[in-house]
């Protein structure tokens, strides 16, 4: 009886652990997917723009870094949510 109860409790704990790991994986992994697509788009467009108008290079580069950082931040929102799920909740 007791052993059965312990097994059930242990299984529940394992499930909770698995859920937390899934949370971290989804938060980090899917966040990286989205931000990766976004960063790729930004740099691709920046290269296109610079090849079309090389004289605007400085302005485009500045905007490119701004866009890069804003996009990259969305990855960290996902990562922070994942870390919260894994270690705090």
């Amino acid at each position: 009886m007791h052993i059965a109860l312990i097994t059930v409790l242990a299984a529940a704990e394992e499930t909770a652990k698995a859920g937390k790991s899934i949370g971290l994986g989804v938060g980090g992994g899917l966040g990286a997917v989205g931000a990766g697509v976004g960063i790729g788009l930004i740099f691709g467009k920046a290269i296109e723009a610079i090849t079309r108008q090389p004289e605007m290079r400085d302005e485009i580069t500045q905007l490119q870094w701004l866009g890069f950082a804003l996009t990259e931040a969305t990855f960290f929102y996902g990562l922070v949510a994942g870390l919260l799920a894994a270690f705090i909740v």
Binding site: A69, L70, E72, A73, F76, Y77, L79, V80
Partner: peptide, 13 residues
Amino acid sequence: LSLTIRLFANILA
């Protein structure tokens, strides 16, 4: 929130 988390999470990560 976004200003905070952007800076904090970038450096922490």
